[in-house]
Design a protein around this nucleic acid. Structure first.
Length: 901
RNA sequence: GCCCGAGUGGCGGAAUUGGUAGACGCAAGGGACUUAAAAUCCCUCGAUCGCAAGGUCGUGCCGGUUCGAUUCCGGCCUCGGGCACCA
């Protein structure tokens, strides 16, 4: 056994444990019928280069859960893979000239080593990477199935266009409305794209949230809002143009305000806008202006609301009034009909627009007791729960529901509209004009049109030697990729060069992991029968930032696979844990001219006052002050990242894991703290020293004392009161740790373990002198408590710090009691008998304020407790001269005496 | 702008889910050991009044329900996540 717990020895300990697991193939998972399975999955990483702290946190949480489930006797699968397609690889290629494929594979190799050094209980035989043809073949295969099922289809979509580089930009590449490399003003451009009809599943995606009680409430709420079911009315404003009768269709959830319509607004891309733009340079200029800027909703929502009158009018379908039509930059073509009715009196956005352009405001809803004024917007104008119709002719006096029903019925009878369910959710555009992604398996033939690649020709393999240069998709320049023959007519044809959104890759990887061919290196099916054993994922763990898109797309994809009879079950993820982000302090200096310089927190030192309060910070290298920018997520741009590699090398994987688990509960943000890491390391060193002392007592012996390992069954019959108290505390802590690990509140599991060690390694009743050196009977109660308690402590810590507990478990020979391997040792049981107490302490309050504590027998009646409380001297002092109105007794906890006067 | 969270000592956080606010850890201060430093061990540690016993205040802010509120309700403020081409 090692003498010290220092970095050299940590490496040996961790290596010893990891080699043992490797030799035993401890983490290789195979289906075992009749045994409860547990599929524990953490969101797979993008191979960006090196692990970051978010990864370490994510995978440690998953690993703790996986290891705990093993100790519960479950058959556990925990796989790992790589979300390997994506934009950063192309950016790296731009910067270094390295092909994205090579960059990605190199990163995977490095990061795999890092993950292995952290000792995660991963079945590496199932590893996959989404950029490999045997994976993305099935993206293509399922896409073609969706195409034939009518779920995948083609239509135009709007993208960010950089006019200088002649390339499509991701939202991320648009900075303040300009291209990131060229600085050119970005334009919107319409191009043909493939879409997946996720809206066909909207109803089920919404309803099935009910089937996910073990998902965080907030994630379900976010998804429900995202899907955004609303019941409203779709109706038409008739109009004539060049003698032809047309309808301007709109959708509204506030049909009750329809009598207050004073104008309509259409999106700049709306056909009506295109029509008038062709006839008016002024309007064309406005439409052109709307085309500039990004397609990001967050930006669109905050831009200045602008509009222009088209000069056209439409007819109000109920009143026959002529309503002017405007073009508004805030109307989204992609949502609803691309046109809206405007009711300035009862919609805040319309109100401000009308005020700005001097359009009429007509009140048609009144809330009793309120007064309406066109000068100022008030919240109640839009309150559909309290209002009644006014100035609305035959609808006057109706409430929201009544008015909507009546108006919808009248529109229906005129053939101009009806009630309709509307979804906020839009179909999923998957075409990307980018190289490093899964090719869309379509061939464009001059004669036959868009022809799907025949199944036997899959996969369409992406060439791995392209180097993007920032001007469009390099695949377009690859004749060997583009030129092909039409599968239908055999004539020369062009291969589609768009690739798929990387969200496609991550929408089904969880199923691929538990598909036997992956493990066996076979590629002949998308998923196989083995998924029937492992799926659904019992526990999914990942960042809260994926709460909507990734999780919604995955749920959709799974339902499509289900409907294609590839898998069974309605939902892929049974339980979900969304971890918080990892934050660190931000320090910077802002020079009088030039850019802000950010400094890594490890290069900054604090100035403290005499109480230890921070009063400033200086840069270590020059001793000059730096400004604090508060706390933020670790990022390159803020230069506040901490490299996990340095941490692992200095303190070891167990310290990194322990700190991560102790610093905050999994769902909360975690603030980085160097001294917190040292605290974790200090604890492990104390644990090691404690183990070392036990080892000497049990197996080596001291002067005059022969070594004897205490053996079960342990015997408490001669325990003193003080020793019983130790066991009571120990089992109380075990009960707490067990509750907490089941709740996945790992920080308090660590806290309980720390208290256990304090209890066992601290002063100890039954020892004389300093205890460790003095002679004593090894069959003593004290030794039995130490043996029992250490066995409990090691198992409580095993999921969190697996290396050190593995070695101590073997060195202290717990194998004989609970099995050779702490990995599969049963989670310790609470001894209920140890928890029993003869007397308990109860808190006494007077009018809710703590005034005394009394010791009463555990079985004392309520009467007796009340009497004991009132008899207490301190209580008497506060009750004296006042009348007792009421006494509340909470059994086993407290007494509250309510007095008056 | 819209949707979803979070706010507790100098700091990270705990509180048996309506019942002792501040567990556990970090930082800080004091002491022991040491030639010294590191490491380790012991003590103190929300604010305030008081020699003390003890009192008062205190969980972002304002109000409410309750014998009792960090916990439940209403209204604000601040910070964080997402907003469909970052993953």
């Amino acid at each position: 056994m090692h003498a010290r717990y220092l970095s050299k020895e940590i490496k040996e300990i961790e290596q010893q444990a990891q080699e043992y697991w490797g030799q035993q193939q401890s983490f290789k998972a195979t289906p075992q019928e009749g045994r409860a399975k547990f599929y524990c999955l953490s969101m797979f990483p993008y191979p960006s280069g090196r692990l970051h702290m978010g990864h370490v946190r994510n995978y440690t949480i998953g690993d703790v859960i996986a290891r705990f489930q093993r100790m519960q006797g479950k058959n556990v699968l925990q796989p790992m893979g790589w979300d390997a397609f994506g934009l950063p690889a192309e950016n790296a290629a731009l910067a270094n000239g390295v092909p994205p494929a090579k960059w990605t594979y190199d990163n995977i190799d490095y990061m795999r080593r890092q993950l292995k050094s952290l000792g995660f209980a991963i079945d590496w035989t199932r590893e996959l990477a989404t950029c490999k043809p045997d994976y993305y073949k099935w993206n293509q295969w399922l896409f073609l199935r969706m195409l034939s099922e009518g779920i995948a289809y083609k239509k135009t979509g709007i993208v960010n266009w950089d006019p200088v580089d002649q390339t499509v930009l991701a939202n991320e590449q648009v900075i303040d409305g300009r291209g990131w490399r060229t600085g050119a003003l970005v334009e919107k451009r319409e191009i043909p794209m493939y879409y997946l009809a996720i809206t066909k599943y909207a109803e089920e995606l919404l309803a099935d949230l009910e089937k996910l009680p073990d998902w965080p409430e907030r994630v379900r709420a976010m998804q429900a809002n995202w899907i955004g079911k609303s019941v409203g009315v779709r109706f038409a404003f008739p109009y004539s143009v060049e003698g032809k009768r047309e309808n301007l269709w709109v959708f509204t959830t506030r049909a009750d305000t329809m009598m207050g319509v004073t104008f309509c607004a259409v999106a700049a891309e709306h056909p009506l806008a295109t029509y008038v733009a062709a006839r008016s340079p002024e309007i064309a200029a406005f439409v052109e202006e709307c085309r500039r800027g990004t397609v990001m909703e967050a930006d669109l929502a905050t831009i200045e609301k602008k509009g222009i009158a088209t000069g056209l009018t439409v007819t109000h379908p109920l009143t026959g009034e002529q309503i002017p039509v405007w073009i508004g930059n805030y109307v989204l073509m992609g949502y609803g009909e691309g046109a809206v009715m405007a009711v300035p009196a009862h919609d805040e956005r319309d109100f401000h627009f009308a005020t700005q352009y001097g359009l009429p405001i007509k009140q048609v809803i009144q809330v009793p007791g309120e007064s309406f004024s066109v000068d100022r917007w008030q919240e109640w104008y839009a309150d559909k729960t309290r209002g009644r119709c006014v100035n609305s002719g035959i609808y006057d006096g109706l409430d929201f529901g009544g008015a909507v029903n009546a108006i919808a019925a009248d529109l229906k009878s005129k053939g101009l509209g009806d009630k309709q369910v509307m979804w906020r959710l839009r179909d999923w555009g998957i075409s990307r004009q980018r190289y490093w992604g899964c090719p869309i398996p379509i061939i464009h033939c001059g004669a036959c049109g868009d022809v799907p690649v025949p199944e036997e020709d899959l996969p369409v393999v992406l060439p791995e030697d392209c180097v993007p240069d920032g001007t469009g998709n390099p695949l377009n320049k690859r004749a060997d990729f583009v030129n092909c023959r039409c599968p239908k007519c055999g004539k020369e044809a062009r291969r589609e060069t768009d690739t798929m959104d990387t969200f496609v890759d991550s929408s089904w990887y969880y199923a691929r992991f538990c598909s036997l061919p992956v493990a066996a290196g076979r590629v002949d099916a998308m998923v196989t029968d083995e998924s029937g054993y492992w799926m659904p994922v019992d526990q999914y763990i990942g960042g809260i930032e994926h709460a909507i898109l990734h999780l919604l797309y995955s749920r959709f994809w799974w339902k499509v696979m289900r409907d294609l009879k590839l898998v069974r079950g309605d939902e892929p993820f049974e339980r979900l844990l969304t971890q918080g982000m990892v934050l660190n302090e931000i320090f910077f200096r802002k020079p009088a001219t030039g850019r802000i310089a950010y400094f890594n927190p490890s290069d900054v030192e604090f100035k403290l006052d005499e109480k230890g309060n921070r009063i400033g910070a200086i840069l270590k290298s020059d001793g000059q002050a730096v400004d604090s920018g508060g706390i933020g997520t670790m990022s390159k741009s803020k230069n506040n990242g901490v490299d996990p590699q340095a941490l692992i090398e200095q303190y070891g994987a167990d310290t990194a894991r322990l700190f991560m688990m102790f610093a905050a509960p999994p769902e909360m943000t975690l603030e980085w703290s160097d001294s917190g890491v040292q605290g974790a390391y200090r604890f492990l060193r104390r644990l090691w020293d404690f183990g070392l002392r036990l080892h000497r007592e049990w197996f080596i012996g001291d002067a005059g004392v022969a070594p004897i390992r205490p053996q079960p069954p342990y015997d408490w019959s001669n325990a003193s009161e003080a020793q019983k108290e130790i066991r009571r505390k120990l089992h109380g802590l075990l009960r707490q740790a067990t509750d907490d690990i089941n709740k996945k509140q790992f920080n308090t599991v660590v806290s309980a373990a720390m208290q256990m060690l304090n209890l066992l390694a601290g002063g100890f009743p039954g020892q004389s002198g300093d205890g460790w050196k003095e002679a004593e009977t090894l069959g003593s109660v004290r030794q039995h408590i130490l043996a029992e308690g250490t066995g409990i402590l090691l198992r409580v810590l095993a999921p969190i710090v697996p290396h050190i507990t593995h070695v101590l478990w073997q060195e202290l020979q717990y194998s004989a009691e609970y099995g050779a391997d702490i990995l599969t040792a049963p989670w310790p049981q609470v001894d209920q008998a140890a928890l029993e107490q003869a007397s308990i302490e109860m808190v006494v309050q007077v009018n809710g304020k703590l005034r005394a504590r009394v010791i009463v027998p555990a079985q004392a009646s309520e009467e007796a407790v009340r009497a004991a409380a009132l008899a207490d001297e301190a209580v008497a002092r506060h009750v004296e001269g006042k009348s007792v109105k009421k006494v509340v007794v909470v059994p086993g906890r407290l007494v509250n005496i309510v007095v008056a006067g």
